[in-house]
Design a protein around this nucleic acid. Structure first.
Lengths: 197, 197, 197, 197
DNA sequence: TATGAATGAGACTTCATTCAT
DNA sequence: AATGAATGAAGTCTCATTCAT
């Protein structure tokens, strides 16, 4: 018997440790030697677990998505009103902003690995988006896809702006705004629905 | 100073040609030799105009911002109502989406050149943001910074989502939504202002 | 000593399986992992039987020679005339051409392991040559070493030319030529011997 | 203008210097760093002239063939009889044995670069063989291809045996033998031709 | 015995940059 | 101002070998 190691589990542990490194420096700027050093293994070992730098990167990306799916489900518990749910979501993003920054940056790296066409055809990417969409749909309790997109784009935008510009926008403030506007808008829709009827 | 003008102008011409290259492949993936070849000059000449790859990159970034400033001013001409102005802005983004994609990607590369701290302290970046903010402020004719941010984040978000996910959102649709909500919201504010008064 | 026999026999089995691998790809291009995989064992096990890659290689070489010795003896049975014996030898080479190709290629690899001096001083190599020489001497029933060398070089040459150039020469044709020439030559020698006497 | 260098001529100079290195150690055992060091250039420069190690190797191979063609033509001058011509050829080989050794070893390496099929289909290889064949045909003044092959295989065989076994055969001795046998054989053919007529 | 995880030197190759011309 | 040859550090990856189990 060889050294007792759960190959797959150890592989995931290594991936976890890579996260920060890629997020901080970007795919291109991180060398396999650096990764190995950071993980406390030799380059040989690194290649024992990941056939190439690209492969390591893709596996990391998959791993991230898997996590997100798991952690998002708890957010909407114990929320009753629309306002509470909006607040909960923006709070969740705010709390995990650092993680989202990193994930976004890594996705950005991901992007530069291949042609745009391939990216847009990529199943993992699509799947991740569907996930988020369903989540927001459930939160807003609306079946108007435009509204769902509206909220998602706003949230994404805030995050991106904060990433690039710093604290020029605040989550809580924007959450309130969204809440008010949405309430007014949905009331309006409801009214016009009533009127129509 | 006859030569200097030529020098500077030629430098800008070279920069222009670099834009697509960086946008398509990313900073790290483009080599100075590739750039030189694309520009039809030798590496020696390239280094004659730009002291380093980084410098070339920064100058490109500056160049981009300069252009944006110029081209954005014309957008709001011949718009009277809020709706028209919102439509005009989103239309402008939609028309130049490809350019914004590239600019965003290059900014992303830019980001990976250095620490987050330095980025956020960077004057060029700040300046660019101020510019956009002023533009939106003027367009929305509101002095509520939260609302300005709201619109900016939404627009940014739509662009980013489309970049990564494809045509899952549409500019026109979101523009309409924003228009309705904003109208309702601003009316409400006006009313409450009145009430308060 | 019950275990030792198994050990040695297993070792030889492993060697046999290595033959094709080395012949096909060459010493340098075959990795120990590949060998292990091909043999259906782990690298650890491989190293249990062979202290190093070089050692494995040398043992393979020895093994080859051992086999040749055994298989060549039967060739000259039931041949009466010189013509029959020459035909038998060339036939034997033709039948086993593939094996000779591989052996030659492996010997070529062998060569590149060390300095020419060492090669020429190598006992295994010498021994193998003596073996072949004795065999040909017996076949030609002559004690003129020049003639023996002549035949050996011709046979070697045909094999090498076919290895590198393909079927541009035929064994049977050359065997006939050698037979005729040798017959003429040996008759002549005999005559002159008589004359001398 | 850059440093004045005749790119192509310098490339050939570098190739020449590589010859011994490859012949002595074999393709696999020579590293690009070693080559660079030996040539007195940096690895970067080496790659400036040769896109890869393989490419360098193929170019070397081509270069060798080109040379052989040139140098073989002078050999048959001032030879009148068959004996003189045979002697001249074997002498030529003996004089340049070291070169032939190296060429043969490099060809052997060459062989291990790719599949046998590809090798045999390789035009350079075929061309080289044709060249040698024509040369020998002219030297022996016979149009019997079997005899030409006979002589070629013998010469090749002597060279190969000497390469692997050392001075166990001598060129001069074998040249004499070949001369005698060939003379006898050709006389015989001539006679039988006469008889037939 | 047998396994395969681990090692780390070293292979090929790239690339920003310099410099002689 | 312009060229492109030259540099060498550094990147990704391989592989013979060792060793804990």
């Amino acid at each position: 018997m060889p050294k007792i190691v759960d190959h797959d589990q150890y592989r995931k542990e290594l991936l976890t440790k890579c996260f920060d490194l890629f997020a901080a420096k970007g795919y291109g700027a991180v060398t396999m030697r650096q990764i190995a050093k950071e993980l406390g293994v030799s380059t040989g070992t690194l290649y024992h677990y990941f056939p190439s730098k690209q492969a390591l990167f893709w596996q990391l990306y998959d791993e991230l998505n898997e996590r997100d799916t798991a952690s998002m489900n708890a957010v909407l518990n114990s929320t009753d009103t629309l306002e509470e749910r909006i607040t909960a979501i923006f709070d969740y993003i705010a709390q995990n902003e650092d993680y989202f920054f990193k994930q976004f940056l890594i996705t950005g790296d991901f992007y530069q690995q291949q042609d745009r066409e391939e990216i847009l055809a990529n199943e993992t990417l699509k799947h991740n988006y569907e996930l988020n969409r369903d989540f927001v749909t459930k939160a807003l309790e609306t079946d108007d896809p435009a509204v769902v997109n509206f909220a998602m784009c706003l949230a994404t935008g805030i995050m991106v702006v904060r990433l690039f510009e710093g604290n020029v926008v605040e989550y809580a403030e924007q959450a309130q705004l969204l809440n008010k506007m949405l309430t007014l808008y949905l009331q309006g829709s409801a009214l016009s629905d009533v009127n129509v009827t």
